[in-house]
Design a protein around this nucleic acid. Structure first.
Lengths: 243, 243
DNA sequence: TGTACATCAGTGAACGCGCGTTCACTGATGTAC
DNA sequence: TGTACATCAGTGAACGCGCGTTCACTGATGTAC
């Protein structure tokens, strides 16, 4: 109900009554054109995304074209065009879904009540962060063509917003959570720190994705340790209770 | 003399005597076709690269085409085609040059004799790392269309090797240098650590490049601190002299 | 030092192809009465 | 419960365009004697 696509459908409806010419803006081109309304069309919508992800994994983002997707989906071009103005809109949807799954997983992890003492030692803190990163990695590996989607989110300017918004959300939530732990921290500084940590952990996921020969578990462990050690900086500024 | 392009020219020469059909492999397509031999052609070669970088900055990697480069360079397609089989070969050359400049700067920094005591305190170590990162950032900002080139190095599979080889070189050199400081460190572990640190610092550069609204200096300072704190891990394993 | 010849560098024009996009249309689904 | 009508979903065929690529060619540069 509150999705971007639904809002967009409203905009389109207004537009269609206002005149013949559609002065399609760049921004509008980037979004799904129409929200599917019948069961049948939802299936088509999903079919397009599924086929696109499969093709993406096979031929890459630059060889991907709307015509090709149609061919493989057994659809005629106008059918695809009904929902997506171009391949970037499809990539945007795929990217938004991937980011959303990752974020859901992260937010769930963040909301967990850590066991008492789970953050007392560095080893424990690293271990907890590591389990989060592992969960993100698993989600990413399981998502069809995730490598390509993440590459596209970086490389295609019109898709960067998806990535940045996602990172900003994660950074913001992390900042709020950490403020509880480091009440004396400067908020701006902590916010920058969480933004950087977010970027670094995503990079580690991409690194693992791009280099199948590297030891994923080890990278995950190390990047977790790096981030935990970095946040020690804020712990050091807190008045430490005597033990 | 020992460049890839020269070797490639030899291959082509052999091929042209062997028959009509050229079974061009994907690998071959990725390299410059022919090494310029006369002054005039070197200028053409450089002109193509210059125009490509300019266009890249204006329209992005996907809209870039060989025909368009020719038009803007005032060349006919076969002239470009003489040196580059496709736009990826051009991107590869640009990418290799960018990576090379960054690496030269890094290796020079690594070879510097740090002032006595320059690494004794964490602040000093961070400051030294920060000056390196700043130098890399400056080189990158000054390189035409560097944002696009770095994006392409990530997103285009055939160009990823350029990026990975560069990172591996940096990681390897860093590992060697750090082994002198941490003689008791496990080499494999240290190597992984330098690889991760390399990735993280490059990510920070890309982050600054992609988000002009972020404070570049602060990001640089923070990522430097993160990496220094991470390497404390190895320092802790060394037998520490009593102070 | 001049000239004939070989190689290098670049041109002009064309090709087939797949791209994004659009037209007028048919069939499927939902709804008002 | 049936029917007329509106809307939704998807088709078939075509378009103009720019792409990568190649052909046969001309002009520029270098070199052997």
């Amino acid at each position: 109900m509150s999705s971007v696509a639904t809002q967009e459908a409203g905009v389109k409806a207004r537009k269609s009554t206002s005149g013949r010419k559609r002065p399609r803006t760049t921004a509008a081109r980037m979004r799904a054109k129409r929200q599917p309304q019948q069961q049948r069309s939802i299936e088509t919508f999903e079919l397009i995304l599924r086929v696109a992800a499969t093709l993406l994994g096979e031929i890459g983002v630059e060889s991907l074209s709307t015509n090709l997707i149609c061919k493989h989906a057994g659809l005629s071009p106008p059918a695809l065009y009904r929902y997506f103005p171009d391949k970037y809109a499809i990539l945007r949807e795929l990217g938004a879904r991937l980011m959303d799954r990752q974020n859901q997983s992260y937010l769930a992890w963040l909301a967990e009540q850590p066991e008492p003492g789970a953050l007392d030692t560095r080893e424990a803190a690293v271990s907890r962060l590591q389990s989060m990163q592992t969960a993100i990695n698993t989600i990413t590996f399981d998502f069809p063509a995730a490598v390509w989607i993440m590459r596209a989110l970086r490389a295609v300017p019109s898709l960067q917003a998806v990535r940045l918004e996602s990172h900003d959300l994660v950074a913001e939530e992390s900042c709020t959570a950490l403020l509880a732990r480091f009440p004396h921290a400067d908020k701006g500084q902590l916010r920058l720190a969480t933004r950087l940590a977010t970027e670094v952990m995503y990079s580690a996921t991409e690194m693992v994705l791009d280099n199948p020969d590297l030891d994923a578990l080890q990278i995950t462990a190390e990047v977790s340790e790096m981030v935990v050690r970095y946040f020690d900086k804020f712990a050091e500024n807190e008045s430490r209770p005597p033990d």
